[in-house]
Nucleic acid binder design. Structure first.
Length: 129
DNA sequence: CTTCTTACA
DNA sequence: TGTAAGCA
């Protein structure tokens, strides 16, 4: 009754390579059962992989995701886990806002240069026409 | 043919 | 992480 998955099953389902799954394992994010050399993943492993990929989408490093995921502790209501996650999320938000600020600044400068180019080209055109 | 490990890009 | 080599 315990659904299991081969390294391929999960790789295909989540659109990642088997290399990635082994890589995540090396980083301590995954710990599939070992049946005679080959890996056998269970539902818990699948869930962890799901969380790893979510963390990736949120911009967290594998180490950060590992820190949070490995903190899973139903007995304690996952309070510590939530606290750390909240901290990471806020930190990430601040970083993104900082990046957004920089991007807007660069965009502003680029547009200034763009305008100067257009003006310059317009002047030369008028002179010839 | 597929998985696994190890090493290198 | 991709790729490749050498095994099982």
């Amino acid at each position: 009754m315990s659904a299991t998955y081969s390294i391929r099953d999960l790789a295909q389902e989540f659109g990642v390579t088997t290399r990635s799954l082994r890589f995540y394992e090396e980083k301590g994010l995954l710990s599939p059962e070992r049946n005679k050399q080959t890996r056998t993943y269970d539902h818990a492993d699948r869930t962890r992989l799901k969380l790893i990929l979510r963390g990736k989408r949120l911009g967290f490093s594998l180490d950060e995701s590992a820190e949070i995921i490995n903190m899973y502790d139903p007995k304690a209501g996952n309070k510590n886990q939530m606290q750390v996650l909240l901290g990471k999320v806020r930190e990430k938000c601040e970083q993104l806002q900082e990046q957004q600020k920089d991007l807007e600044s660069m965009l502003k400068d680029l547009r200034t240069v763009e305008d100067r180019c257009l003006v310059s080209m317009a002047d030369k055109t008028e002179g010839k026409v």
